[in-house]
Nucleic acid binder design. Structure first.
Lengths: 349, 349
DNA sequence: CTGAAAGCGCTTACAG
DNA sequence: CTGAAAGCGCTTACAG
């Protein structure tokens, strides 16, 4: 019987091709498997001469350690998952980058996915990440019930929610002061003489949308202004819907003289609508926008620091991973009112 | 001797906590390991009654399959790596999203990272992704020598370069028509009467930057206009550098009457500089920008379709993975001139 | 300083 | 329809 080793499979579906393994390197260098492992991982206890032979074999074969195997044995994947709403939304760019930088500083890679504002897709993604055994999870939730995460949390998957809180479970959350920011923004319009102020926001089921609406109501109440139903419109951020809502508020017999917009996408559409009309309407938007300073008038906004949201969340995540047994906490980051002109226009009537 | 199973390790560093395995599920359901595997993977050949018992055990224990182990055996990770320059750059948002969508359609996750325009960091990231055995790689290269990828390519890692070509290796590449786009944009300025036209671009080592400069030169030559050295400035996209370059071109005795900018970041800074000056200067920018239509004048651009770049690259990647033995190809996507006002301003003198 | 054996949690290839 | 054994490519825990 020939004693060629019997390799169970080398199927066409395999993507490993014929990658060399530590065993192959060991054979070529004439050393034991463990010695190769030591060299690859820079562990001590290898003579320079042995190390040289192993290095030579590694290069000759083009060996690259298979981290899948390593992960299986070590129990840590050195990767974190980030689930957000839409990778293409500029709001999440700095946030993603900040999470990546913190992960990188801890030697971890980032696995990234969009929920498309769909609770089911969020869950699917989160569970796929858990199956990959990411060490931690940063989630901008689309859904409002995260009990599906309970077994994962018990199993030790570090988790931080960002931008919006978790639903029906106790978990760390990092959010902006949506309520206070919106209240300040609307109060700013009131201070400039407005009383009929519209609010155009995102879907009411989204936490940030309802918090900002609450801020709007609070500012109006503080000023003793009764709010009319027709001044508020919540719904999808689709340009068509936002356009109709804006035009409706501006076309009533008693039109609003100012608008507060609930997020960056709404703001962009409202600016377009306002730019087509002759009568000036004041505008304050939640979220800053690139080039906001170059518009005429400049756009006044309530800015949140999306990079700080990501950084804070990721740092918290790694503190959990470093073993600090932390009680779930809610961290709120301040917003900042940036005045550039559009929010300082006086009422047109 | 007690016959408690000897578990080699359950170290504090382990993040798996005490996650149940298929073995645990099998024991609880009173079936073999393979039967659990069948149920988890929806394979046929399990009686409904057995399946029920297994499902019960799965839920009672909170079992979730460990894909790390699966990957090790199967040889495919169902993940693709995307290395780009900066996750926070809005240009890459739609590109990332497009790659994600294609990956998702193929059941794969996306691992994402920024090279920060640093060749070493690019290599480090790419190799980390290869060690994780991603099935494929979409790379927006920072460096210009990718021979370090040769062993990986031989081992069957599908690879597509986007936005810029690979250096010193033969690989698929998907790029925009940078040369033609820039040439058309500059020709547009010439058609509107300009002769002294400045070019402000990114670092000359970056392929897109030099291609666009080449397009600029070609358009000028076609029109018989000798280009002066002082009309061209290439360098980092840092606002300070771009501002100085712009101001210099505008302050000479014979100032340029129009500027062509080499990418979105440069454009933004140049708009700021021009908006501070009284004399109008025409501007055409490479890359479209959100709100470009709302500026006064509207911004004329040479737009590339960044989502199409990502989609095309990812589709090509999965065709490679599906086993088509494809010869490396260069795919060029067209750009589009969008006129909005700034590029149609006549020369000021 | 070095290496053989066991094991991480799955899937593969069989055999019953 | 069901399951025991072997193996994926590493690291762990030892022993020499």
């Amino acid at each position: 019987m020939p004693e060629t080793p019997r390799r169970t499979h080398r199927l066409p579906g395999s993507r490993y091709g014929n990658r060399p393994t530590m065993k192959d390197v060991a054979a070529r260098a004439g050393v034991g498997l463990k010695t190769v492992s030591r060299v690859v991982n820079g562990e001590p206890g290898v003579t320079p001469e042995t190390e040289r032979r192993v290095q030579e074999a590694i290069e000759a074969l083009g060996f690259r350690r298979n981290d899948s195997a390593r992960v299986l044995r070590k129990g840590r994947t050195s990767s974190v998952g980030l689930v957000l709403e839409d990778l293409a939304d500029p709001f999440y760019g700095p946030l993603s980058r900040a999470v990546e930088e913190v992960a990188r500083a801890h030697g971890a890679l980032l696995i990234n996915g969009s929920s498309a504002e769909d609770a089911e897709r969020e869950q699917e993604l989160v569970l796929a990440l858990c199956a990959r055994r990411v060490d931690g999870l940063v989630v901008i939730p689309a859904g409002d019930d995260h009990r599906y995460l309970e077994p994962e949390l018990r199993a030790g998957v570090a988790t931080v929610f960002v931008d919006r809180p978790a639903g029906r479970i106790d978990a760390d959350v990092v959010v902006s002061d949506n309520y206070g920011g919106a209240r300040d923004g609307v109060a700013h319009l009131i201070a400039h003489g407005h009383r009929r102020i519209g609010f155009i926001g995102d879907m009411p089921g989204i936490h940030t949308a309802s918090e900002r609406l609450r801020g709007y109501r609070a500012a109006m109440e503080d000023a003793g202004i009764p709010v009319e139903d027709s001044w508020m419109s919540l719904g999808v951020t689709d340009p068509g819907r936002v356009r109709r809502a804006t035009e409706e508020m501006l076309s009533r017999p008693d039109p609003v003289t100012a608008v507060f917009t609930g997020n960056n996408r709404v703001t962009v559409t409202v600016i377009r609508v306002l730019s087509e009309r002759s009568r000036p309407v004041a505008l304050v938007g939640f979220d800053d926008i690139e080039l906001a300073d170059l518009l005429r008038p400049g756009l006044t906004v309530v800015a949140q620091d999306s990079a700080a949201l990501g950084r804070t969340a990721a740092e918290r995540l790694f503190r959990q991973l470093d073993g600090d047994p932390l009680a779930p906490e809610r961290i709120e980051l301040p917003t900042k009112l940036i005045t550039r002109g559009s929010g300082e226009l006086p009422p047109a009537d």
